[in-house]
């Protein structure tokens, strides 16, 4: 028998507007100086922009800091350390900021000559303002949820999987929260929460989440 959720899941989507801070970094020192003081939304923008903006690329490059220090400063080792930051394990943007600062502190304490980005290749710090919009899709059953998941835009997926957890500081992604609390699907919720969304494209992530839900639907009723 199909289980009906206590609360429906309402798929929303989002569009973003980029605001400039007027701050720019030419060197690793300047980047460190700015990272200590910028609002958390700036940290979020530069660690997530590639996820939302460049779906046609392979999962690389993972974040602006890794890209910039590698390509513009030629600091490959530092770039690799930024790229390897496991964002999925952070519960807040302040923790993520602290991790980024620690990497830069370590690098600067051991680095030799400091490189400067060529003119025109500075890192300009900015933040995103998110506009959340309704979609026509909502779900009260697992079947409805799978249908909606397949229909919504990747921006909807981005909002529910990324923004919800880290930027809105909800405990987990929206899908896992609803599946566990409104539908009692705790195992499925855990399986989705265990996915690393940072190492795949959003379409790849959609396929994996949909695959897990479809698998659950094929299981025989108890």
């Amino acid at each position: 028998m199909t289980t009906i959720a206590r609360e429906p899941f309402r798929f929303v989507t989002q569009v973003v507007q980029i605001e400039l801070t007027g701050l720019k970094a030419r060197t690793v020192e300047e980047l460190l100086e700015h990272l200590r003081v910028v609002p958390p939304s700036v940290i979020h923008q530069h660690t997530h922009r590639f996820v939302s903006d460049h779906q046609f690329l392979s999962p690389e490059p993972p974040n602006d800091f890794a890209y910039w220090v590698t390509e513009m400063l030629g600091a490959r080792q530092l770039g690799e350390q930024f790229a390897a930051v496991d964002i999925v394990r952070f519960r807040s943007l302040e923790d993520l900021r602290a991790a980024m600062i620690a990497i830069l502190d370590r690098y600067l304490s051991s680095a030799g000559a400091v490189r400067c980005a060529p003119e025109g290749s500075e890192l300009h710090l900015m933040k995103a303002v998110s506009f959340i919009l309704p979609t026509p899709y909502q779900a009260t059953t697992l079947e409805d949820f799978l249908h909606g998941l397949k229909k919504v835009s990747i921006h909807s997926l981005y909002h529910h999987m990324f923004e919800a957890r880290l930027r809105l500081e909800r405990e987990q992604n929206d899908f896992s929260a609803w599946l566990a609390h409104s539908l009692g699907e705790t195992a499925l919720a855990r399986a989705i929460a265990r996915l690393d969304p940072y190492t795949q494209t959003l379409e790849g992530l959609r396929r994996r989440v949909a695959g897990l839900v479809a698998l659950r639907l094929r299981e025989p009723a108890p």
Binding site: V15, Q17, S41, D53, F56, K127, A128, V129, S130, F131, I132, L133, P134, L168
Partner: peptide, 29 residues
């Protein structure tokens, strides 16, 4: 994704909407 006229139009619409929500990072429409 980023440099067609339709994106430009979207950015203008968002900018107009944002005038009603100064200082907000999340705007629910």
């Amino acid at each position: 994704e980023h440099f067609l006229l339709t994106r430009h139009l979207r950015d203008y619409l968002l900018l107009f909407l944002s005038l009603h929500y100064p200082g907000k990072d999340f705007i629910y429409l």
